[in-house]
């Protein structure tokens, strides 16, 4: 017995060390599981041979994916939501970006008040907003429907656009614009060649945010859309009778679409840096 055995740590220490090293991973697994179980569940049940109600598993089928518009009205509801979402996104992004530049770059009377007011729609409960908007539309003798819904969506999306774009503008180094001016670019060209490209990621992010906010808004839409059926409204209404599996197909597709956009964005960014 001349060779000393390699000293081993006591069992308890080894376990605690293992936990110490892997705690963050364990935590991450739990976190992501918690986040993704609903998504996985939705995705799984999009393959359910559901029939009338998609509450219990009845067997695997690809029919729902082959025929996403199979359930009555699901695709027209989806179409409405996409139309409203696009219109609201474009309008809110343009207006919000202009407001963000005004607030971020210019000093004018009422600037701090505007800064504060921009936050209000985000802080106000949606039911209250929805109900007041409906009251307002009725007072102006405008019947609820497609356009009132678009207007309502633009209204609550603008705040988010302003906040997102303003943050990007604030992080912009003013010396870059000064350098452009120093290099013979006038105000317009400086904006076009330096300011706008640098703020663009913020604007794009704001547009994506606006679209997703508009697309799944239920409360405000429910007040102002009248008989028009949007996708969230469709799902809500059919919940009483049983949600068709096609809703799961569309929901999962939206999720994957968002995922692809995010990954593509990352790839483009990485390529730009290289």
């Amino acid at each position: 017995m001349s060779q000393a055995p390699i000293p081993t740590l006591p069992f308890g220490r080894r376990v605690s060390r293992w936990f110490g090293r892997n705690l963050i991973r364990i935590y991450a697994v739990f976190g992501f599981t918690y986040l993704f179980i609903p998504v996985i569940y939705t995705f799984g049940f999009s393959f359910n041979d559901a029939g009338k109600s998609n509450l219990t598993w009845r067997g695997f089928t690809l029919n729902n994916w082959k025929n996403p518009c199979g359930a009555p009205d699901v695709c027209s509801a989806l179409g409405n939501s996409i139309k409203i979402g696009l219109l609201a996104t474009v309008t809110a992004t343009i207006l919000g970006t202009l407001i963000a530049f005004a607030l971020g770059r210019h000093r004018f009377r009422g600037r701090s008040a505007t800064n504060l007011l921009i936050f209000l729609p985000m802080a106000t409960p949606e039911v209250v907003l929805g109900a007041s908007l409906l009251a307002m539309f009725l007072a102006f003798r405008i019947n609820p429907g497609f356009w009132p819904t678009v207007i309502a969506h633009v209204m609550f999306c603008i705040s988010f656009v302003v906040v997102t774009v303003k943050a990007r503008i604030a992080s912009l180094d003013p010396r870059l614009e000064q350098a452009a001016m120093d290099l013979y670019a006038n105000e317009r060209e400086t904006f076009r060649r330096v300011t706008l490209p640098l703020v663009m990621p913020g604007i794009a992010g704001a547009a994506l945010l606006a679209f997703s906010l508009s697309f799944d808004d239920f409360i405000i839409t429910n007040f102002n859309s009248g008989t028009l059926v949007t996708f969230p409204k469709f799902v809500y209404v059919s919940a009483a009778r049983g949600i068709p599996a096609q809703a799961n197909v569309i929901g999962s597709s939206m999720f994957f679409l968002a995922l692809i956009i995010v990954i593509a964005g990352q790839l483009v960014n990485r390529k730009k840096v290289r």
């Binding site: 010396r175 870059l176 350098a179 670019a185």
Partner: peptide, 20 residues
């Protein structure tokens, strides 16, 4: 005169190269 109207160029303290 505006900065872009002057026959003057600056090398900034922090370089200020355009990152994009």
């Amino acid at each position: 005169k505006k900065p872009y109207q002057r026959p003057v160029n600056t090398v900034f303290q922090n370089y200020a190269l355009f990152p994009h």
